[in-house]
């Protein structure tokens, strides 16, 4: 199982009410808010924790037809490190976060065999980004498996989960896609 989330930091800065206390109260516990306000990096800390929660949510919600918006049920730990933990109910989900000048990306995983990749979109149109994400995922899977990209297709199943097909055959590998603003990210688990 794999979950992946990316935040475009320029986009998030312009298109979000992140400066407000009410924003923090809706998303983060008291402990998480203490961390967010602890070191003068409020903006980065918010999106670091958000991407941890969202990537873990994608593992939990994978295949759920009815989405939930319950970020406070996902509790972030080890937030001072790139390697974190998100606890949901009795499940502990490890995460790895990478922070770049223009984006923050987190991968949440169950098994340690996975890869992730960040890419930049050619424009902000949702459909164009969708197509580009699928192409990027097919190319990454081709490289991973040493296959020709032409043999690979990415198709969403009827639960909305994208899956790999090689020459028409469904693969066991799992794919998680994320996009925000000008950035996309993918994570593949074997």
């Amino acid at each position: 199982m794999i979950g992946n989330d990316i935040v475009d930091l320029i986009f998030a800065n312009q298109n979000s009410r992140w400066q407000e206390q009410r924003f923090l109260d809706k998303l983060f516990s008291e402990e998480e808010q203490e961390f967010i306000l602890s070191n003068g990096s409020r903006f980065h800390n918010i999106w670091h924790l958000w991407s941890m929660k969202e990537s873990a949510y994608k593992i939990i919600a994978r295949g759920n037809r009815v989405p939930h918006f319950n970020p406070k049920d996902f509790k972030c730990f080890s937030t001072h490190s790139d390697k974190g933990q998100v606890i949901f109910q009795n499940k502990s989900i490890p995460t790895v976060t990478q922070t770049h000048r223009n984006f923050i990306q987190t991968t949440a995983y169950i098994k340690p065999e996975w890869m992730s990749k960040v890419f930049q979109f050619i424009n902000t149109d949702y459909k164009v980004q969708n197509t580009q994400s699928y192409q990027c995922a097919a190319k990454s899977y081709a490289e991973l498996k040493n296959l020709s990209p032409d043999t690979i297709e990415v198709i969403k199943n009827d639960m909305g989960v994208p899956q790999f097909y090689v020459n028409g055959n469904l693969q066991e590998a799992q794919l998680s896609l994320s996009h925000h603003g000008c950035f996309g990210a993918l994570a593949i688990a074997e």
Partner: peptide
């Protein structure tokens, strides 16, 4: 999904109401 909380806050302001977490969870 990063903007869902902004939608919730904008709804609260527009209608001068407060939305609880259990309501927010299903407000999709």
């Amino acid at each position: 999904s990063a903007n869902l909380v902004d939608v919730i806050l904008d709804v609260e302001d527009e209608f001068d109401i407060r939305i609880e977490n259990d309501e927010m969870e299903r407000m999709l």
